[in-house]
Write a protein that binds this DNA or RNA. Structure first.
Lengths: 206, 206
DNA sequence: GAATTATACGGAACATTGTTCCGTTTTGTC
DNA sequence: GACAAAACGGAACAATGTTCCGTATAATTC
């Protein structure tokens, strides 16, 4: 069962099925594409033209389609990697801060992520196969993450008990989504409000 | 000061902003366009190509753009006329049925209308100027309509008091919107549920 | 390390669709 | 009936998703 030896130098069992290892140049290009897509989507929404992403990544559009057969696959990939980044950020934040601060900062971080998703909400409901399971991935990865943050803050007595992570996750997304257009400060105020809401009734009042 | 004489035969001092009467052929084409658009939107969603609507209406695409400078103007026009039709339907239903039946049937009618709007929710949030005020129109016309139906049913004791028409309107739309893809029966069950909800606590239990 | 093969690349080419343009047709006026 | 204004149809243009293919790069073989 020595999978690691068979797989090569690094253990990344995540996508194994039919994932012949990419040539190094292909890996580089792929990274550049994801990076460029991230920036372009954040600036222009997920409806931005593929050519723009290609130019920004310094590749031809054919190369993008080699890695992401459909435009929606690229969107989904960026979305997934940002979800993962959010999970990672939670771990870091909770190591370096007290539970309430970690929770607060993570919600800010999370809301910034949501704010870069102009147009995705629409896309999600479009029935495109590439989006199948994206919402599930979103919940499956982020709910436990937020749950852990909440439980830590709860255990330290900084917030009250019984806050539902699912609700808070969606509520935050909705609050930030409606305010995306005009006021960037709005999200922050909304989050502050939510935080205050869950602090109400905490054991420690500090 | 004999302006009329100078202007010619008719007294239309200033073009009353784009409301010059249309030539009869233009009126016919316009009607055909709206009719075709209604059908196409219902079948293929509001993202259906303009050419398809043009073909179905038996006109050139140029003719569509003559009447609706932007694709979104056509969508908005169809939406508006369907809202109006919903209002009209409410009047008819309440004349021919007891209040609760009228209310139930109207909600069914309304949900069918909503179901034909695949993709519109997305469009509404796109910031296109043609959609400015559409949502307002939606609420301004339908809220009083539903309010009247509710009040009649309330007065007859068939539903409980204090049901908020705004909430019911939006709730119905949301319920039907999420279920649009798969199960057409789902909307009906949801509406039945809502109706039961507002009957709970009614004076008359019939 | 040169030759050969498999991978990957870039960008031109194609298809679809929103929108504009213009020569032609229809309607209204005298 | 002649002329002008309004309206039409569809070709042409532009933007964009997607495919294709000749070329370049990396892996493999000898």
């Amino acid at each position: 069962m020595s999978q690691d030896a068979r797989e090569g130098h690094s253990a990344q069992p995540v996508e194994s099925i039919s994932e012949r290892r990419l040539r190094p140049d292909a890996q580089r290009k792929m990274g550049a594409i994801l990076e460029a897509a991230f920036v372009v989507f954040a600036n222009s929404g997920v409806d931005a033209p593929v050519r723009l992403i290609a130019k920004m990544a310094g590749v031809g559009s054919g190369t993008i389609y080699r890695h992401f057969p459909q435009r929606s696959d690229l969107i989904a990939a960026v979305f997934r990697s940002q979800i993962d980044a959010c999970v990672t950020a939670a771990l870091e934040l909770s190591q370096k801060n007290d539970p309430l601060t970690a929770l607060t900062r993570w919600l800010k971080r999370y809301s910034e992520f949501i704010a870069t998703k102009r147009g995705l909400g629409n896309a999600l409901h479009s029935g495109e196969p590439a989006y199948e399971g994206l919402m599930d991935y979103f919940k499956i990865r982020l709910c436990p993450t937020l749950k852990a943050l909440l439980e830590a803050a709860e255990a330290s007595g900084q917030i009250r008990e019984g806050v539902n992570p699912d609700d808070l996750l969606i509520a935050t997304a909705n609050l930030c989504h409606t305010s995306q257009v005009n006021d960037p400060e709005h999200s922050q105020r909304m989050i502050a409000l939510l935080i205050d809401g869950i602090r109400f009734g905490a054991k420690r009042s500090s």
